[in-house]
């Protein structure tokens, strides 16, 4: 296989990696808020259950979680899972990352002084207005560096999708390497991941700069 051919094959795997990356962020970033609110709920049962799920999701390997999500429907409910592979990846990744994002959001929210809530309350803001107009913009600025870290980790975590046989960039790389009996594909894959993360860092840095207006 020529170098160009390898590049072409690995880039086709890259598309799948980007799909996982993209859909995981689309679902986990908002889902993280719901989990964070559950965690911070005054209802002890809700916050207890949420805390338990967060600890499970953060305390077990993502690879195992992917297997549970993919094979679970069959082994628990005898449902056919032939076309469930890609959705299972997204569900597994999104839930896992939502747990991490939730803890980041929670730390961001608790970093906002209580005086901000009191000032908003006195000025007549409703709870929803207070959250969206006063608290959230400040929280986003606080949590952005931590979110960036998670996003970069996600780029690399996408390779775990192969544990349930979803063929993304890293598994294609391994396949080419084994057929061609060379390590060159790994060097190419490393470069791809690196460039991907350079892009991610660049975008996040731009965002951080834009939010650094005050």
């Amino acid at each position: 296989m020529s170098f160009f051919n390898m590049l072409e094959q690995i880039s086709s795997g890259m598309l799948h990696t980007i799909l996982i990356f993209f859909f995981t962020l689309v679902f986990s970033l908002p889902l993280g808020w719901i989990v964070a609110f559950g965690r911070m709920s005054k209802n002890k049962i809700i916050s207890g259950i949420t805390a338990f799920f967060i600890s499970i999701l953060r305390g077990t390997p993502l690879m195992l979680q992917l297997m549970v999500v993919f094979y679970g429907p069959y082994f628990l409910f005898q449902l056919p899972i032939g076309n469930w592979r890609f959705p299972a990846i997204i569900v597994g990744f999104s839930i896992n990352y939502a747990a991490y994002f939730a803890e980041i959001y929670r730390s961001g929210i608790s970093a906002i002084p209580v005086g901000q809530y009191e000032a908003a309350h006195i000025l007549g803001y409703t709870k929803v207005q207070t959250f969206f107009k006063i608290i959230l913009p400040q929280v986003i600025r606080i949590i952005l560096p931590a979110v960036t870290n998670e996003v970069i980790t996600l780029v690399k975590d996408t390779s775990l999708a192969f544990s349930i046989s979803y063929i993304e960039m890293f598994s294609i790389t391994k396949q080419i390497a084994s057929t061609q009996t060379t390590l060159m594909p790994f060097a190419i894959a490393a470069a791809f991941y690196y460039i991907f993360n350079l892009l991610v860092s660049f975008v996040m840095r731009r965002l951080e700069k834009r939010l650094n207006y005050y």
Partner: peptide
């Protein structure tokens, strides 16, 4: 209205 000891202006 209320004026706080620590101002509590909205920093953003």
């Amino acid at each position: 209205g209320l004026v706080f000891q620590n101002f509590n202006l909205f920093p953003h």
